[in-house]
Nucleic acid binder design. Structure first.
Lengths: 187, 187
DNA sequence: ATCCATTATTTCTGTAACAGAATTAGTTAA
DNA sequence: TTAACTAATTCTGTTACAGAAATAATGGAT
């Protein structure tokens, strides 16, 4: 018996979320990992013009990393965890939204550790500077070259003497499509 | 009042586990991922005396797969995007549970495209064969070498003439810890 | 009428609770 | 001695629930 009449509010209330959840039990040590996993999962996905959306299914994986200290011999069981941590995300991808993969062809950049067939991780937001390995558009095609920018001279140099430099004179525009940040080399 | 006397069993019972657990709520879509995460975590996965347990915090790798026209050479900027998707996971990691990372040190394997500081993707389940680049345990330390297995001779060879081969005679055991499948080379 | 604070309503979220499975060691039988 | 059995204890997956969060209708102020 509530004397103070309350008006009903049909249709009110929090709306159902399309994201279903469930409860799982995990090792306590994995808590932070799972937490970050969820953060990464919820992170807004971006969609550069024409780029594919990330595959929603797979690409989250946990891998153990043995750090620098390891090659120096096995740690004793008593040894604590090594502080150094590898996050391939941080290692390979600085800007998710602007990162692309290209496959290298030829041996013109062997000096930079780029072999035929390697996968190049390209960051399109990184500012190209002298000495950077870049993806440039030359004659309407992509090319991997090292950017040379000194004393007013702008050129693209292959890290292989067999290839001639491409020098840009006044009026000629150099279009740098992105900067290569990492090379994945299959064995 | 139980007439059938039951003997007590002090000290009986399941023993407490050192691994504490807790319950978390996660997006349903992440269930398989978290499951794999736990499998990888629990994996008896070879624990060479003193090997570290996987770091609970870091080793999560989120690799968004953007797809450009990757295969068979560089696409022209005008080219349409292709349905083909590159999944770095599939490219780099065949067995989640048995894949580890090591950081290469030194220049002994420069011939294989391995530079100082590169990250090595190591598959522990892949069978080591002649010619493979492997992680071996020599004198209690990790080493990257190329496995030589011909005419009854077993040896570890550096891809650099400055380094001497390590030949294994009868009775000497060669412990191959894993096979290097990929090299990540930062620029 | 428009805007804003209030509130009923609905769903979400983290955690506690619980029942059944699993594990261990003492007890009993063969 | 060995194997089967069972009490004791903990683990594990799921459910339940209380408080937080979100949303739209309500009602008052401007």
């Amino acid at each position: 018996m509530d004397t103070t009449q309350r008006k009903r509010r049909p249709g009110g209330g929090r709306k159902p979320s399309p994201i279903k959840t469930l409860v799982v039990r995990i090792p306590a040590l994995l808590k932070p990992t799972v937490t970050r996993l969820m953060e990464a999962y919820k992170a807004p996905a971006f969609r550069p013009a024409g780029a594919m959306t990330p595959d929603p299914d797979a690409p989250i994986i946990l891998l153990p990393m043995f750090s620098d200290k390891v090659p120096a011999g096995f740690p004793s069981p008593a040894t604590d965890y090594v502080e150094d941590r590898l996050d391939l995300n941080q290692l390979l991808i600085v800007n998710n939204e602007a990162t692309f993969f290209l496959r290298a062809k030829g041996h013109s950049m062997i000096g930079a550790g780029i072999h035929d067939g390697d996968i190049l991780v390209v960051d399109r937001t990184k500012e190209p500077n002298h000495g950077h390995v870049v993806i440039a558009v030359v004659d309407g095609e992509f090319t991997v070259k090292r950017l040379y920018q000194q004393n007013g001279t702008v050129a693209l140099k292959a890290d292989n003497p067999d290839f001639a430099d491409i020098v840009f004179n006044d009026g000629q525009e150099l279009l740098v499509w992105g900067v290569v940040t990492n090379v994945v080399h299959p064995l």
